[in-house]
Computed example of a mutant assay.
Amino acid sequence: MFYGAMVWDPWLIVAQIVCLQCLYYLGLGLFMALLVGTRVPRLTLLYLFDFATLTPRTTTGWCAIASFLLAAIAGYVLDSCFM
C-alpha cells in the first residue's frame, strides 16, 4: 500500500515504528558517543540503563542527560518532518 491510502495497513504502521525506534537509538548512540564517550575511558551500556549515572551531580551525568534530550528532540524533528 502507498502512504496516504485510505486503508489501515498494520504492516506499514509496524514498519514505521521500527524505523523510528532505530533512528532514535542511532541518534542516541551518536550523541552518547560524542558527549559521554569523550569524558569516560570506556563507553558501556551502564550510561544508558543505570539511574545512578543519570545524576545532575556530575558533568558526565549532565552529558548523559543532554544526550537523551537531544535524541528526543531529534526524534521529534524527524517524526514531524516525515509524518
Rank of each mutant, 00 (worst) to 15 (best):
M1Q: 07
M1L: 02
F2V: 14
Y3H: 05
G4R: 04
A5H: 06
A5E: 10
A5L: 07
M6E: 06
M6P: 08
W8S: 14
D9V: 12
P10V: 05
P10Y: 00
P10I: 02
W11D: 12
L12P: 09
V14F: 04
A15I: 05
I17E: 04
I17T: 12
V18D: 02
V18K: 02
V18L: 08
C19R: 11
C19T: 15
L20H: 15
L20S: 15
L20D: 15
Q21P: 15
Q21T: 15
C22I: 12
L23D: 05
L23N: 09
L26K: 01
G27F: 03
L28Y: 14
G29Y: 00
F31I: 02
A33W: 05
L34W: 01
L35I: 05
L35C: 03
V36K: 04
V36A: 04
V36F: 00
G37M: 01
T38F: 01
V40K: 08
P41Y: 00
T44Q: 03
T44D: 07
T44H: 00
L45V: 14
L45W: 13
L45Q: 11
L46C: 10
Y47K: 10
L48Q: 11
L48M: 09
F49A: 10
D50T: 06
A52I: 13
A52C: 08
A52F: 00
L54G: 13
L54I: 13
L54Q: 14
P56D: 10
P56M: 03
R57V: 15
R57Q: 14
T58D: 04
T58H: 00
T58R: 03
T58I: 06
T59Q: 08
T59I: 11
T60D: 09
T60S: 11
W62Y: 07
C63I: 02
C63G: 05
C63T: 05
A64E: 02
A64N: 05
A64L: 01
I65D: 12
I65M: 11
A66L: 13
A66T: 12
S67E: 02
S67A: 12
F68A: 08
L69C: 13
L70R: 03
L70I: 13
I73A: 14
I73M: 07
I73G: 14
A74T: 09
G75V: 02
V77K: 04
V77D: 07
V77Q: 07
V77M: 05
L78S: 11
D79L: 13
S80Y: 13
S80C: 12
F82T: 09
M83P: 15
